[in-house]
Amino acid sequence: MKVLICIGHVPDTTSKIRFTDNDTKFDKSDIQYIVGPYEELGLTRLLELKEAKKIKTITAINVGLKETEATLRKALAIGADNAVRVDANPTDALFVAKQIAEVCKKDNYDIVITGKESIDYNGGQVGEMIAEYLGVPSISSTAKLDLDGDKATLVREIDGGKEVIETSIPFVATAQKGFAAEPRIPSMRGIMQARRKKLAVVAAVSQDEKTKTTKHFLPEAKAACKMVDADNVGELVRLLNEEAKVI
């Protein structure tokens, strides 16, 4: 069983977000980049399945410029067997999905895992688009994955509950919270080994851009918080009713 996991190269969740070039670009200065938190969960679960001998190899992939290799190396340090970087400055989700689908077609992966969304542009599109390019099932917002030979059982979050889904390989699943209990962090040994693991760089295929981000905005500053005395909670009720009109 060969599994491909798509690794997002995203700003650390604690980052203060700023923009540059007349708000057309994200300001990368002082930003620490990490493996996306959902992909971390995805990779962790795949390692558990590999240890249970249900998966043979785990390949990490990213579509990006040389700068994303540090993030791929981190995925290798956590435990992925090898990595692929598609050498391109990704323009939109469709472009990224197309590149990954092309790699899948060449190398025949049985399962593709992505995070449910990147934590920068929050599109949540790439996994489903890859599945569509490959003509295979996609299971979105997956909170559990189990394998039994060629069969898989997944639990997907839906509005107001959960669905249990059975499918067979090949398929694409997008991982969300619950996919693994706690994300693994690289061990010293893992970091040493990662340096020797193979990180292949492949050329991108062409794909027209269908969307573009033209401007970034920060949320408008809020008016100062109105403080209410702890001994006068009735005043809060009055404000919520008369001023804010929400109760």
Binding site: P11, T13, I17, F19, A93, L94, I119, D120, Y121, N122, G123, G124, Q125, K210, T211, K212, T213, T214, K215, H216, F217, L218, P219
Partner: peptide
């Protein structure tokens, strides 16, 4: 595809949608 529109298009020609980004820490015109 524009995922997560938060209001009517900002303009129709060109077609621009405002959406959240950076998990709610910012917005973008898309």
């Amino acid at each position: 595809l524009a995922p997560g529109a938060i209001q009517l298009p900002t303009s129709y020609e060109p077609f621009v949608i405002k959406k959240k980004a950076y998990s709610g820490k910012a917005f973008v015109d898309y």
